[in-house]
């Protein structure tokens, strides 16, 4: 494990807050590409703007393209079409990919472009100060929903699946082996692969939702995860504040 990290990381310090789940996700992404033995020379990471966009850039020792807010998937589409030999992995956040970049996400899934999109979903806009995202669970407090969010969140796996993605999966960062496995499957998918990593944000989400204690925050997140089997027995509105975990493919 340690070998892989040294091999892939640049010698820059991390930008993540202590307790942030994105560091775990960075480790999962690196281990996945390492285990797949992808030729680093032809590996490109693309990210947008936001905390999760910092996962590949400037951390990973490979080509990286750190783009504009929301546009990562569109930049990645151009790079992939211009040089199909590249393995292109987009790593970005929930707000970036599904709010400002939602249109690009569904169209890339519709076209079934051979990209892997890894969404670090921390359910909030972390970098800009804790505002509501399209992935914020119902009831969660944010800087723009001090009384709690009233709008239901996107089920991003369902969104990309409905748009045509052949592979989608959702796991919390507390299940790194599942994440690594799913990222590998998404990369190997001939077409558009999507992996959503539920990642806790202690600084913005935890602080506002009385989950300051890191252990509590991680316990809370694990407690909200339900399997697809369990989800079948629940009402849709119950799922608005939970995470259905598992894989979705044909």
């Amino acid at each position: 494990m340690t070998r892989a990290m040294e091999h892939w990381l640049r010698t820059e310090h991390t930008a993540f807050c202590s307790g942030c789940g994105h560091g775990i996700l960075l480790g999962c992404v690196i281990r996945a590409v390492d285990e797949l033995e992808i030729d680093r020379k032809n590996l490109l990471f693309v990210s947008g703007i936001g905390c999760a966009a910092w996962i590949p850039s400037p951390n990973i020792q490979a080509d990286t393209l750190h783009t504009l807010h929301g546009r990562a998937v569109a930049y990645a589409t151009g790079a992939k079409l211009a040089n199909p030999r590249l393995t292109v992995i987009v790593v970005s956040g929930d707000g970036d990919l599904s709010s400002i970049g939602g249109n690009h996400l569904i169209h890339a899934a519709r076209r079934n472009i051979d990209l892997t999109v890894v969404c670090g979903n921390n359910q909030i806009y972390g970098m800009t100060g804790g505002q509501t995202a399209p992935s914020t669970p119902v009831g969660a407090r944010t800087a723009t929903d001090p009384q709690g969010n009233v709008y239901r969140p996107f089920d991003l796996c369902a969104v990309v699946r409905a748009a045509g993605a052949p592979y989608a999966a959702r796991w919390p960062v507390t299940r790194p082996m599942s994440l690594i496995d799913s990222i590998k499957k998404a990369v190997k998918t001939d077409g558009f692969g999507f992996v959503e990593a539920i990642s806790p944000c202690p600084t913005q989400f935890g602080r506002r939702n009385r989950l300051d204690d890191l252990t509590k925050l991680y316990d809370h997140l694990v407690g909200l995860c339900v399997t697809r089997e369990e989800a079948k027995k629940m009402k849709p509105e119950q799922l608005w504040e939970r995470f259905v975990i598992g894989e979705y493919h044909d």
Binding site: A74, T77, G78, L81, N83, N103, H104
Partner: peptide, 23 residues
Amino acid sequence: AFIQMEDELASISALVGAAWAGA
């Protein structure tokens, strides 16, 4: 390579991605 993108935000983004891929 030719692609009709979903909007012009995406078009110019794809242009830059492609340029850095050598196009």
